[in-house]
Write a protein that binds this DNA or RNA. Structure first.
Lengths: 190, 190
DNA sequence: TTTTTTTGCAAGTAATCACTTGCATTTTAG
DNA sequence: CTAAAATGCAAGTGATTACTTGCAAAAAAA
């Protein structure tokens, strides 16, 4: 006898992740989350047990949403595939990128949340497989695929980070096409 | 009448930054910091006013230490200079790198600490000038120097981040020489 | 030495946080 | 309709936090 719920988990999880991104783990209070989700704070504890469990559930839900996304597939066109990866990261998975930063910087300190850390790393590991295939075909230089993915995404991630930090430095947005061109053929002239 | 101090500010600042890196801003309690610095918690408030002021002072002190470091200079050898930048970042300024992550991810949320954010960005802006010079000489492709620095450091930063997060992914350390080689001449074969 | 300043210690304050309890109300299931 | 489950509301608990106060000891300055 499963009972229909008046409260939509998805709404609560969305509010939870929003508050996490905006205020961090310590800064996202259960009171705030409840308010943002439009439910009573007590209900939060009755349904999810504790703040840590709620956050873990919300992150896992975020992963489930990511799994349904258009996966980047191998097409045989290196340039197009790399661009697609970087685009996914820079646009569609912008939220994931911010989440990854949050998780690495903060959530890692909370042992009870350790297992949820893998969530944003799925993308990276998926990209690694495509890179590996192009390496086997002799289209990309060899080397640990995860390092190559890091080199591909690193500039984009760092650009996002720096720009979101609103530093005094005037950092322009990265041009993904140019980035791929330079990634493939280098920054050196000649 | 300047009075000699029994308590060394440097010790306190070191303990403060250590605690920040290990536990984050919210997680680094004044009690912990005092304990790590070997002084009384009350002294912390008497000398530095508030936690925010203490953290700000500690971060500014960290910047002062960075300023005394061997600056990366223009030598005319692109490859060597780029490698030196990346080395500084990956080794000597490892702590700075972690600090930057912490500051971007967490400190940015505390308005009273906003001005201390520029601290780790000094390096980046310094690197930008060297890159700009090589661009003027026609040795590197043109483009906003700060973006080029981002592309240079991005893979290293992301590698450090991912490895420090102890993910389930087996991410090897990055080889800086190879990274520079790929940065200059690209990942494409042919 | 005498005075001033710095530090430590014990205790406490007010706020906040995650989390709980009891009870009334609404919603859903049978 | 009736019973059970889900939710809201008000109040409270205990722990923790940044920060304060008063006073004595120690160190430095004069």
């Amino acid at each position: 006898m499963t009972m229909a719920k008046q409260i939509d988990d998805a709404d609560v999880f969305l509010a939870t992740v929003d508050m996490l991104l905006a205020n961090g783990y310590a800064g996202a209070t259960t009171k705030m989350i409840a308010e943002a989700a439009g439910i009573n704070e007590v209900t939060l504890f009755r349904k999810y047990g504790s703040k840590a469990e709620l956050v873990a559930a919300a992150l896992l839900h975020e992963r489930a949403a990511l799994e349904k996304e258009q996966p980047v597939a191998y097409t045989g066109n290196v340039e197009a595939d790399l661009l697609a990866m970087v685009r996914i990261y820079a646009e569609a998975a912008h939220r994931q990128s911010a989440l990854m930063l949050l998780i690495i910087a903060e959530v890692a300190r909370y042992p009870e949340l350790r297992e949820t850390m893998q969530v944003p790393f799925m993308l990276i590991s998926r990209f690694g497989k495509i890179v590996a295939r192009y390496q086997e075909e002799g289209r990309l230089h060899s080397g640990e695929p995860l390092l190559v993915v890091g080199a591909l995404l690193g500039p984009v991630i760092v650009n996002t980070m720096l720009r979101s930090a609103e530093t005094s430095l005037p950092i322009p947005p990265i041009d993904l096409r140019i980035h791929i061109e330079r990634f493939l053929h280098g920054y050196a002239i000649r």
